[in-house]
């Protein structure tokens, strides 16, 4: 069993020093977890340390590809509200697109 860091990682370094197994390492384009070393913190901590400090929803997943921090769980923004806001921004962008200030 091992966790995985995926492409939404913003390379903030927060998880790396917390890993009890030293399984997390800096890489391009984002940090990675050595699957052979990762124990998901079993026996060391109640919660996986990387996923407990990671600020980005969806950036850390388990072997079933399930996000440990699903959408809305960290920011408090309901996913529906997020989608609406993004649509509004796109609409504004296309309305004023090409205009120079």
């Amino acid at each position: 069993m091992a966790l995985e860091i995926v492409e939404s990682c913003v390379n903030c370094f927060a998880c790396q020093p917390l890993c009890p197994n030293d399984a997390i390492f800096e890489a391009k384009p984002h940090f990675l977890i050595d699957a052979d070393k990762c124990t998901e913190c079993l026996g060391d901590y109640a919660d996986a340390q990387c996923a407990s400090i990671c600020p980005i929803e969806g950036a850390i997943v388990d072997e079933l590809n399930v996000a440990l921090n699903p959408p809305g769980s960290l920011t408090g923004i309901p996913p529906q509200r997020w989608a609406t806001a993004q649509a509004e921004i796109r609409a504004r962008g296309s309305a004023t697109g090409g205009e120079t200030l």
């Binding site: 913003v10 903030c12 370094f13 927060a14 400090i53 600020p55 980005i56 960290l74 920011t75 408090g76």
Partner: peptide, 14 residues
């Protein structure tokens, strides 16, 4: 200093 230990509602880490 990229890492943070809290989340503030006025901040977006991305």
């Amino acid at each position: 200093a990229p890492a943070c230990n809290i989340q503030c509602h006025y901040c977006n880490r991305k």
